[in-house]
Computed example of a mutant assay.
Amino acid sequence: MSTAPRFATIAQLNDELRRTFATGDVMLTAGIRTLPPAQLPAVLARVRHHNDFTPDNDPYGERDFGAVALEGLGRIFWKIDYYDPTLTFGSEDPADPTRTRRVLTIMLAEEY
């Protein structure tokens, strides 16, 4: 698979996880977990609907990192990492969902 289709496939898989939270693992950092319960749905919605990708903030076109702002909370980062199916090593091929387990981490900016 050439580079452009490979990055497009990775981006599609990342978007699916970010939008649905169903095709991988979602981890919330301690800072996110300690937010008032009423704020968590807004945080998750901002991550799900994030679509502000540019060559400056997404140079490889994988859509694997983003920053969103929420009034009263400041910046929240989200990041997708690629592991092998056992979560032991990094994935050998993030474009292959049978060989990759995606982990989406949502964190306060100061936790990065």
Rank of each mutant, 00 (worst) to 15 (best):
M1H: 13
T3L: 13
T3Q: 11
T3H: 13
A4K: 14
R6E: 10
R6S: 04
A8M: 05
T9I: 08
I10S: 03
I10K: 03
I10W: 06
L13A: 08
N14M: 13
D15E: 14
D15P: 01
L17Q: 01
R18N: 11
T20D: 06
F21E: 03
F21G: 10
F21P: 03
F21N: 10
T23S: 14
G24N: 04
G24L: 02
G24W: 02
D25C: 00
D25H: 04
L28P: 00
T29S: 15
I32E: 01
I32D: 00
R33L: 07
T34V: 06
L35W: 04
L35Y: 09
L35R: 05
P36Y: 00
P37F: 03
A38K: 14
Q39V: 01
L40Y: 12
A42Q: 15
A42L: 12
V43T: 08
V43L: 04
R48W: 08
H49Y: 08
H49D: 15
H49C: 08
H50T: 05
F53E: 09
F53D: 08
P55C: 14
N57D: 15
P59G: 10
Y60G: 02
G61M: 13
E62H: 14
E62N: 15
R63W: 13
R63L: 09
R63V: 10
R63I: 10
F65H: 15
G66T: 10
V68K: 04
V68T: 12
V68E: 05
A69N: 12
A69I: 01
L70M: 03
L73R: 09
G74H: 04
G74Y: 05
R75P: 02
R75S: 15
I76K: 05
W78L: 04
K79H: 10
I80P: 01
P85V: 06
T86K: 11
L87G: 01
T88N: 08
T88A: 13
G90D: 13
G90H: 12
E92N: 05
E92Q: 12
D93Y: 05
P94Q: 03
A95M: 12
A95N: 11
A95C: 08
T98H: 14
T100W: 09
R102P: 06
R102S: 02
L104I: 04
T105K: 11
T105Q: 11
I106M: 06
M107D: 00
L108V: 01
L108F: 00
A109M: 10
E110F: 11
E110R: 11
E111C: 02
E111H: 02
Y112D: 09
